[in-house]
Structures are given as structure tokens and as C-alpha cells.
Amino acid sequence: MTAALRALRRRILTPALSSTSLDVRGFRKKNPAAQELLETIGRSFLEGYGQIVSASDVQAAEPRLEAIPRQFRGFAYEGAAMGCSIMDALPGSGGRRMSGLLAGHGDAHTYMAYVGIGWAMARLPRVLHPDVQETDPLLRWLILDGYGFHQAYFHTDRYVHGQRRERKLPWPQDQASYAHRAVDQGIGRALWFVGGADVDAVLALVGAFAPARRGDLFSGVGLAATYAGGAGADELLRLRESAGEYRPQLLQGSAFAAEARERAGLTVPHTQIATEVLCGMEPHEAAHVCRELRPGASDRVDAPAYETWRQRIAGALVSEGRC
């Protein structure tokens, strides 16, 4: 395919840049700095997506992905993973882009890549969905996390203000018992964006959901507050204190974010502020908790393994007096 055709393909397949605007989305605008941060995250995601769609192969896109500022590079790889999944679903593609991404620099961004697959699933007809049975049994729940984020971000009235839950999720029925919870974790991440990184607005959004859903939502909020940033120490302390009985899940999400950034070598100042305030730890310490408690290969067979991992992380943070 010629460069001109690849450029045309990118223009056709890439979502409009305006879709990342808080004004267009109708999201809360806390202040100009928070707005610019959240919109830059969206633009970085689309840049990663576009680089994959317009490149001849994954290797050709990697130098441009690696050139994206480190604060936003993980989001670019998330978008790149969505692009790989979309491209792999097209007739005649060979279905090798996603595996190529994870075999290269994308390996450091595995968590974000799995989330990106969920974005693709939200956009593709179900007949073109990737086969989740071929993904990591432990991390595949992050695909539904990404799916939930997409639905809350683009269909906010239904999934956030209307607290909608789908009857049938794009997921194998024999693994469906945990699926809604994984989706809620992604919706929780999206609430950080919908609320414009305004802690009071985010707390109000979470509080509108049924109590049974709030633990997973707070987990997503903690992850987004730590990975994306946008709130200062005083705001994060208010978030921690206001989480109440769901504070362990909030901390678990924060630790997950620290692990994702540490693994990719992308830890930035706001990551440190967030883990110090929320978890009482340096980012590398919070990441170590996640790695130390990660289930072994023999345990990684179903939803409980992933949920057990999350519970162990939360329990460790609480038992050490961090909560």
C-alpha cells in the first residue's frame, strides 16, 4: 500500500480530534490546566491510534510512538493497541499487528495495550471482535475495563448519568459472572475525565451509582487520578478521606497505575504525589506490592484470580497502615 493510501486510511479510520474536547464531550472543566491535561491525553491516544493505522507495519510506527512525551506515551500506546485491533479485524490484514506491538516496545505498555483492545471491541461489530481466549487469562479483564471506559466517555448520558448496565456484554458467557465488575472499573476511570479531574465532581458522580458498584468505580478513579493526574495533593487527600469504606479499592487502583507507569519507565511527578497521598508509598513501592502479589501462572485461569489479585493488593495496603 502506498503512503498516500495509508494516509487516506488513517483519515477515514481515526476518530475526529474534536472528540477529545471537554466542550464537545460536555465534561466538567475544573480549570484551564486540568482541561489542557485531559485533552492532551485524548490527543495522545488518537496520535498513537493514527500512527498505527497509517504505518506500513508496527515497527514503522514505533519510533513515532516512542517520540511522544513520556507523560503521555502510555496513552499513545493504548491508542496504538486499539488501532492494531481494528486493523487486525479488517479482511486480508493477516491479524498480526497486535502481536507485533506486544512483541516490540509495546511490551512495556501491556496493561495499556489490553485496555486499548477494549476500545476496539466497543467500535467493532461483534463478529469482528478479537478472540479474548487468546489473551492473557489474568490481564484479559483489562479489555473490559477499556470497553467500560469507552462507553462512559462516548455515551456519558447512558452509562454515567443513567448508570446503564448492558444485559449482554461482548464476552464469553462462561466467564460472564465478573464481566460487569470489570466494566465498572473502566467506567470509574472515565469518571475522572467526565468530572474534569475535579474531586468533588467525581465524588458526586460515583455517589449517584448503587453502593454495590462503588468499590469498582473507586478503583477506576484511583487508577485515573494516579496515571492521568490533574489533581493536587490537597484534592487527593480529600478524595482519599471521602472514599470511606471504598478506600481500599481506591488505593488498589492507585497502585495499579503506579505499576503500569513503573513497568513502562514513565513515572512522572504527579504519579509520585498520588501514590504518596493515596497509598502512603513511593510509586516503586506501590508497584512492588502489585508485582509481589500477582498470581502465578497456575492460578491465572479465571475471574477470581484477577479479583483475588486486586483484593490482595488492597489488603496489603490496609495491613501496612497505609489506609
Rank of each mutant, 00 (worst) to 15 (best):
R291H: 12
A274C: 05
P248C: 04
G230A: 08
H288R: 15
E245V: 13
P295F: 07
A208L: 08
R263C: 12
A208E: 15
V301Y: 13
G232Q: 06
V277E: 01
P295Y: 06
A274E: 02
Y306T: 04
G244Y: 06
G296R: 12
F218M: 11
V202R: 01
A210W: 10
E282H: 15
R240K: 15
R291P: 07
C279I: 06
E307I: 10
A243V: 02
E276N: 10
E285V: 09
A210F: 10
A243F: 03
E245R: 15
A255D: 03
R214G: 00
S219G: 13
I273N: 08
G220I: 00
R214P: 03
P248W: 00
A212E: 15
G296H: 11
L237H: 12
A243H: 02
S298P: 07
A264I: 05
Q249T: 08
A204E: 15
D216C: 08
A224D: 02
V268C: 10
C290A: 11
P283A: 03
P295M: 08
L237A: 15
S298L: 15
F209A: 07
P283E: 03
I273A: 09
V202W: 01
G280N: 07
S219L: 13
D216E: 14
T226I: 02
L203D: 07
E276W: 01
F218V: 01
V277M: 05
D302E: 14
P248T: 05
P211E: 10
T271H: 15
E282W: 10
A201Q: 11
L237M: 13
R261W: 03
F256N: 04
S298F: 13
G229H: 01
Y246C: 08
S242C: 09
L251K: 04
A255C: 05
Q272G: 14
S242I: 04
L217I: 04
Q252S: 11
E235T: 10
P248V: 01
V301F: 12
P295T: 06
F256Y: 12
A201E: 13
A303R: 04
A231R: 00
A258K: 00
E245H: 12
Q249F: 06
S298D: 14
D302M: 04
A231I: 03
E262C: 10
R247E: 12
H284M: 13
L205N: 05
L223H: 08
Q272S: 14
L251D: 02
C290F: 08
M281C: 09
E292P: 06
E292V: 12
M281F: 08
R247G: 02
R214C: 02
R294S: 08
T226V: 05
V268Q: 13
S254I: 05
